[in-house]
């Protein structure tokens, strides 16, 4: 299944979701799509001024352009997602995940989809590491209708 990740740039979430047989919807995918599509030059990310316009589908015109541009990346992923894993204390996320207002909107739109969502915090010790990894594995297994790997 297609799993939206929050933060969408997370190495850990991307790895664990893929490790247990699902498709991580990470920030790299819409960036790759832009980097591999011909058009006008707009370094570094090939996000062009058209992206904030595409973002109007998710946020009104009075919303800052940086939010709408980011939503042009994430909006389609959220629509595609069949489930989501969310880390609720991802305070040190930058770049694609560097805008708090965008992130608030992403989280709201995910909840609104009413798809299965797993909320977690980053583990801060070994015990929490077990809980964290176990919860993700269990969540993903349950999406498949139960069972382990």
């Amino acid at each position: 299944m297609k799993i939206f990740l929050y933060p969408a740039t997370s190495l850990i979430l991307s790895d664990l979701v893929e490790r247990w047989g699902h498709e991580p919807l990470s920030a790299a995918l819409p960036i790759r799509e832009r980097i591999q599509t011909a058009g006008f030059e707009s370094p570094p990310l090939q996000i062009t001024p058209d992206d904030p316009k595409r973002g109007l589908r998710y946020a009104a015109v009075e919303v800052p352009s940086g939010i709408r541009g980011r939503m042009a990346l994430y909006g389609p992923l959220i629509e595609e997602a069949e489930a989501a894993v969310i880390i609720t204390d991802a305070d040190l996320a930058f770049g694609c995940m560097g805008c708090a207002r965008t992130n608030e909107l992403i989280l709201y739109l995910i909840r609104e989809r009413e798809i299965p969502v797993l909320d977690l915090t980053y583990p801060k010790n070994e015990e929490e590491g077990v809980v964290f990894v176990g919860a993700i594995r269990k969540f993903l297994a349950d999406l498949n209708g139960g069972g382990g790997e």
């Binding site: 030059e41 707009s42 370094p43 570094p44 990310l45 996000i47 062009t48 001024p49 058209d50 992206d51 904030p52 800052p64 352009s65 940086g66 939010i67 541009g69 980011r70 990346l73 770049g95 694609c96 560097g98 805008c99």
Partner: peptide, 11 residues
């Protein structure tokens, strides 16, 4: 800065 790359105006 914040947002210039995502507004498509860094160039």
């Amino acid at each position: 800065s914040c947002g210039s790359e995502y507004s498509g105006i860094q160039k």
